Simulated scan of single mutants.
Amino acid sequence: MDAVATLPWADVWGQDEAVATLQAAAADPAGMTHAWLITGPPGSGRSTLAAAFAAALIAEPGDENGMRQVLAGVHPDLTALRTEGVIISIKDARALVERSYFSPSLGRYRVIIMEDADRMVERTSNVLLKALEEPPERTVWILCAPSEADLLPTIRSRVRVLRLREPDVDDVARLISQRTGVNLAIAEQSARHAQRHIGMAQRLATDDAARARRDDTLRGVLSVRGVGDAVEVAGRVVQAATEDAKTLTAERDELERATLLRTVGIAEGAAVPPAVRSQLSALEDEQKRRATRSLRDGIDRVLTDLQSMFRDVVLLQFGRDTDLINRELESDLRALAAAWSPQRTMTVLDQIAATRRNLEQNVAPTLALESMLVTVASGRIP
């Protein structure tokens, strides 16, 4: 198959059935559904598939340049919301709705992509309802979320749902090894620890420090025996997540600031005139929101890792040891499985899930982790 024919879908991996469905939809304007919901776990490729579908919809068949513009996010008929805040704001939702009523300027369709649609509160969801129910003839909405249950029923009733499959660990490992050149053993371990999340698996495979932090965190939690240990380990987890978030955002923040100043003609190191300060302040506010989201995402990844560890303990308690996620800790997990009852392990898992929900409600991360680790130490919810 030639490059033009495969171009929109070249980066979509392991989702042949979904690709076939969307290819057929893009080729049939008469039967086109104008609002879609792509669901799948984090790392399953929802955003990549949404971008490929947008390219197939907007560009004429064979228009390689148009497809590349869409995939790069610079085509005038594509609007994509990739929120980096804790929630999607009503302001952002209204801007999307307003944009959706514009006719396509160059392509066949105007496409609106909303990633992380599960981050909408009810008021924000209500802003979208009419736009999803009665979109203009040549506008297509593509929402992305982990599952249908993450959106309101009123939203779900107005979209066509496309569910992605979860790849196998071995499939993810081969992909990561091919992409990065790391040996297959490291790729397999990373894919397993990331629970098949492709982006996270790639980061673990290529970052020795990230793998070491994960191992240190899990072993630290296993060492918790009382309130003092809980406080110490919670502090270490938050500190590590904070440093990780700063590493991920600092370079980007500085580049954005330099780009803004260069755009308005201010030389490096020169004083910022009052007329530009409001723009700089708005950028800094956005960066702070992104940093908050990055920190919470980092802590959520830690909690996901802890869930995988205590899930392994439950499996061992019921005599299953063939599909452990954290094989490197098997001897410690077997000791814990023998010392605890299954009920105690389930209590800890319930508290980890509750902690994840609490963090989404802006509970202080350190306090939330301390409370969760007290449950690990005692087997009882405080």
Rank of each mutant, 00 (worst) to 15 (best):
L303C: 09
H75Y: 05
R203W: 10
R327Y: 02
F53V: 03
P8S: 10
E328D: 15
V374Q: 03
L255K: 14
L248T: 10
D171M: 11
L255H: 12
L333D: 07
R110T: 03
V97A: 13
L57S: 03
E243Y: 05
D92P: 06
L349T: 00
R219W: 07
Q202M: 14
L260P: 13
D16A: 15
L151C: 08
T39A: 08
L255S: 12
M114G: 11
T375R: 03
T247P: 04
V86T: 14
R356T: 12
A50L: 01
V233M: 10
R192P: 05
E286P: 05
T249S: 09
Q15D: 09
S44W: 02
L129R: 02
L280G: 08
G199I: 09
A240D: 13
A282E: 15
S105D: 08
D28F: 04
R252D: 12
A201I: 09
N126I: 07
R311E: 08
M32K: 10
S190I: 04
D332E: 13
W9M: 11
D168H: 12
V159L: 10
Q351W: 00
S331M: 08
S190E: 05
E115D: 15
H75Q: 06
D118C: 08
L373N: 04
V182A: 10
S341Q: 12
A234K: 01
D244Y: 06
F310T: 06
T322P: 01
E370H: 03
A339I: 03
S371C: 12
D215G: 06
A258P: 06
L57T: 00
V363L: 15
V313R: 02
A258V: 09
D168A: 15
R110K: 15
P136I: 08
R289A: 13
L349W: 01
V231N: 00
S341K: 04
E134R: 06
L248S: 09
S331Q: 14
A59L: 02
P8Y: 12
T154K: 00
V182D: 07
A131K: 05
R311W: 09
A5Y: 01
A353G: 09
D215Q: 13
R334I: 01
A26W: 00
A271Q: 13
A20N: 06
G31H: 11
A27T: 02
R262H: 13
E64G: 10
S223R: 11
E284L: 11
K288A: 14
Q351K: 05
R203S: 12
P167I: 02
T79R: 15
A241R: 05
A230S: 14
